[in-house]
């Protein structure tokens, strides 16, 4: 019989959940987490042992009838991509193909206060752009929530500027439209940089997690009690299948119909 054990079990499960969820941010996180750990050029100290080197990507943009064709280039680890409509690139004089490359880089213009949430990527093409392309960058860090902007610097001596963002169809990425190639990074503008101790950290240590665990247990039990009570009221003589059914005995699906027939 469930009795008082049901609310007690729920309370214990709620406490266990809070303790487990406290170990990671933001806690229970279903289905939309990154497909794989982010591959850093310069990994944070706690990820150095497990980090894998990020990969680049290279493609040839075909030219047909004097126009560069549309396409899509992603790095091997899917962390950076470029989507280019047709006629995005200037066609070479001889009408030959165009080379497009995306590479993670460790040397780039000074970020000047921008807080990167991923690697800096260098995107280059053998001919200049003549219409915008969309750069999509996955982010690996969320110091104050998801990053908002893609930033770009055209040359090693250029200053960074924000490209803003456009709707990205892929979770954990930020996309932006650009007229120029060069260096790209996803991150936080200087004003949104995290302050020391900000963002919650571990949430204040054990006393807070215990308070949250108790609150979760109380909330779960209080939410369950009316449902359990209503269930018991409405159950009446209804058997609690499948528990009440002996092993090997099939469910009696016709019983209710026969009982109605007797009335």
């Amino acid at each position: 019989m469930r009795g008082p054990r049901a609310p007690a079990a729920l309370g214990i499960a709620a406490v266990a959940y809070v303790l487990a969820a406290w170990l990671v941010t933001p806690g229970f996180f279903d289905g939309f987490a990154p497909a794989a750990p982010y591959h850093w050029v310069s990994p944070p100290p706690d990820l150095r042992s497990s980090n894998q080197a990020p990969s680049g990507g290279r493609t040839t943009v075909p030219v047909q009838n004097g126009a560069a064709q549309a396409g899509h280039l992603s790095t091997g680890d899917q962390q950076a991509s470029v989507a280019y409509p047709s006629q995005s690139f200037q066609v070479p004089a001889g009408g030959g193909p165009i080379t497009l490359a995306v590479e993670p880089v460790g040397t780039y213009p000074d970020l000047g206060g921008i807080v990167p949430a991923g690697n800096v990527y260098s995107i280059t093409a053998s001919t200049p752009l003549i219409s915008p392309v969309v750069v999509t960058l996955r982010y690996g860090s969320q110091q104050v929530g998801p990053p908002s902007d893609v930033f770009t610097a055209e040359t090693p001596t250029s200053a960074w500027r924000s490209l803003g963002s456009i709707n990205s169809a892929v979770p954990f990425t930020v996309a932006a439209s650009t007229h120029m190639l060069g260096y790209f990074v996803v991150g936080f503008p200087p004003a949104a940089a995290p302050t020391p101790g900000g963002g919650g950290g571990a949430g204040g240590g054990p006393p807070i997690v215990l308070l949250v665990a108790v609150a979760a247990a109380v909330l779960a039990v209080l939410a369950a009690l009316p449902v359990i009570a209503a269930r018991r009221r409405s159950a009446g003589a209804e058997p609690e299948a499948p528990d009440a059914r002996p092993a090997g005995v099939p469910r009696n699906r016709g019983g209710a119909r026969r009982r109605r027939g007797r009335r």
Binding site: Y17, V18, P26, G145, P146, G199, V209, A223, A224
Partner: peptide
């Protein structure tokens, strides 16, 4: 209504630490 309460339980660790997750399009 109980489902909303259970959702609050699932969200409590995140709410207590003021750490929002990614915004889904």
């Amino acid at each position: 209504v109980s489902g909303v309460a259970v959702a609050a339980v699932l969200l409590l660790p995140a709410l207590a630490r003021e750490r929002p997750g990614p915004l889904l399009p």
